[in-house]
Simulated assay, not measured.
Amino acid sequence: MESLGALNVFAQAAEAGSFVGASRRLGVSPSAVGKAVARLEGRLGARLFHRSTRSLALTAEGGLLLERCRRIFAEVEAATQEMSLAQEAPRGRLRISLPLAGMLLMPTLSAFMRDYPEITLDLDFTDRVVDVIEEGFDVVVRTGEVSDSRLMTRMLGAFEHRVVGSPDYFERVGHPLSPEDLSRHACFQHRFPSTGKFERWPLYRGQDFVGDDLPATLSASTLEPLIYLAERGHGLACVPIFTVRDQLASGALVSTLTPFMKSTGKFRVVWPSSRHPMPKVRAFVDFMAAELKLGA
């Protein structure tokens, strides 16, 4: 703390251009400023100012030290502000990017809104890769891994996929007994809007992937129409369990080929790195991690 105090005296003298000006800012005598700078120079073994009766100019070493001081005090100020903010109640606008499947997380988001009425949500649904910092997002929810060192990340939960159809569909067409039987079924495919490719059905026999060359009776860039049409008996969809939890519980949809399913996906929440996240960000991250049940 003594070193920080000496650095502050030095920085004030450099900014003011004189010991007298620094003394007015700090509320001490000019001689006290001069002595503090002299002691600092002694410890550093370098001259920080060119002194004359009329002016005070930084040496090259003094200029380098002033740059460092500015960064140090900016960090101290930022840390102080963050700690102050951390004590505040969560409030304000929270800009969130979610995948298109995130529409199916609306019940969880609705519960968050009830618990935090002073937070206003600004939701952006897209499957493209967003630049969290450049595009000004407070929080981003995505599947997969995160490698950006500028971001903090927390896993919300893992989930598996299921091939589902309605009882009426299975009564008419029958259950597939193996992945190869799907060639005789109406299969609804999820198409990634960013690439145009179909999301593969994670079907395995042992370690061998056997989910290739499935029919594409219908394709869509979001999951909702696939689930809707599967509920109404038009075919089969392969979707994350959490998107059809209610339908499976009520019997509106039934899963099939479960022994051949192998996928485990992960939902992560990421946000700009900070020692002390804004209260609204911390509230959202903690709430989603606690409330979002992605399993069966």
Rank of each mutant, 00 (worst) to 15 (best):
G34F: 06
S183T: 09
T153F: 04
V173K: 06
P193A: 08
Y169W: 05
L236K: 03
D286N: 10
L56P: 15
R114W: 04
L56A: 10
L229T: 01
Q189P: 00
E145Q: 14
F112I: 01
L121F: 06
D246M: 00
R154D: 00
I119T: 06
F284K: 00
V285F: 10
R232K: 14
K262M: 02
P272N: 12
A296V: 04
F284M: 10
Q87V: 07
V146R: 12
G165P: 03
A74D: 13
V129Y: 13
M278E: 11
G92L: 07
L257A: 01
A60N: 07
G63N: 04
S149D: 13
P279T: 05
P193F: 02
V210N: 10
E171F: 09
K293V: 00
G17N: 07
S23K: 10
D131W: 02
E67Q: 10
G5W: 09
L98S: 02
V163Y: 05
M278L: 15
T126C: 06
V164H: 01
K262H: 03
L151A: 02
L156M: 04
A186K: 02
S221D: 09
W201C: 01
Y228G: 00
L109I: 07
M278V: 05
V270W: 03
V254K: 06
E171Q: 15
E118D: 14
H161R: 10
R54C: 05
V20L: 13
L105R: 06
G144I: 07
T256Q: 05
P176M: 03
Y204T: 03
E82H: 13
E199G: 09
S194E: 14
L65S: 05
V9T: 15
I96N: 04
L229D: 01
S147M: 11
D246T: 08
T258K: 07
T243L: 03
T243N: 08
S3M: 12
G136C: 13
G295W: 11
S255E: 09
K262T: 01
L214F: 10
P117A: 13
L151V: 00
G165T: 05
G34I: 01
L177Y: 04
R114T: 10
L151N: 03
V141P: 02
H234D: 02
G21Y: 05
D138S: 03
M278T: 05
F192D: 15
E41Q: 11
G63T: 04
R93K: 14
D127N: 15
L177K: 12
A158R: 15
P277F: 11
T153R: 15
E41C: 00
L203A: 06
L177Q: 06
P193H: 09
V9L: 08
D181W: 10
